[in-house]
Design a protein around this nucleic acid. Sequence first.
DNA 1: CTTTAATCCTATCTATTTAGTAGGAATAAG
DNA 2: CTTATTCCTACTAAATAGATAGGATTAAAG
Lengths: 140, 140
Amino acid sequence: MLSQRGRYALKALTHLARAPEGETRQVIGIAEAENIPRKFLEAIMTDLRNAELVVGTRGKNGGYVLARRAETIMFGDIIRAIDGPLAMVPCVSKLFYKRCDDCVDEDACAIRQIMASVRDEVSAILDKTSLAQAALLAAS
Amino acid sequence: MLSQRGRYALKALTHLARAPEGETRQVIGIAEAENIPRKFLEAIMTDLRNAELVVGTRGKNGGYVLARRAETIMFGDIIRAIDGPLAMVPCVSKLFYKRCDDCVDEDACAIRQIMASVRDEVSAILDKTSLAQAALLAAS
DNA sequence: CTTTAATCCTATCTATTTAGTAGGAATAAG
DNA sequence: CTTATTCCTACTAAATAGATAGGATTAAAG
């Protein structure tokens, strides 16, 4: 399961993706619209900024904008930034690869082979679905 | 990601699935073969017994056997028993459904629609892959 | 009936992660 | 100078993860 943070991040970013390109949105507005605790969302936006998915500007009339065009920000990017690997086991993750410490023979591991195919299917969806597509899907 | 428990459970059960049908295997043997801490594996086997995936018999020459034929025990069953839902968000889980408490309109939620397709793909693999298939895949 | 080998049960421990909250500093517009 | 925003630091409480310890229970075999 995604963490609450991850789910909130997706919601906040789809919210941003629905704003006219380049227009800033404030945390408080997003928080209210999406039912996210304000201070918590602030923390999440910081993570998203560090992940370079979002750009924040301070001061009056400040707020957040997507760091790139919504077409180029994929669900996979967001989830990885907040919750880590898409893969169910570390040894099949492409971007967070780590050998299982109890592993005897990685190539002979049945679980690994099955989990690799899961990872591929998940990635086929999440790395090909952009915020732009999500923004069109339905108006929340 | 799966928890360590979940991964160990899969390993232990594939190990059992490779034993001749009906033959018991002891925790200590599995633990050594699969590099799992013995006491921890004991606790996991208890979970699997409670989930009725495995039957334990006590006393000398005791041990564990699969509760059903390996063809009928799916990866999805095991993961759900140990780690919970396959779905990435509670509101698309079929067996653990729960509405997101911050949700405004479930049907209009873009994230939900995308995550539903992920869930379907994951389930298409994990609920169709049995221990029997895994046991054949490779000898660990 | 005693030994031995196994599961089973209860309890405990430590570290990490999760889901926040609090309070204020920095910045920028008007 | 006021106001509205992000940004930064720190803190907390609860749950989860990943075990470990010690012994009770059961059953086979001698």
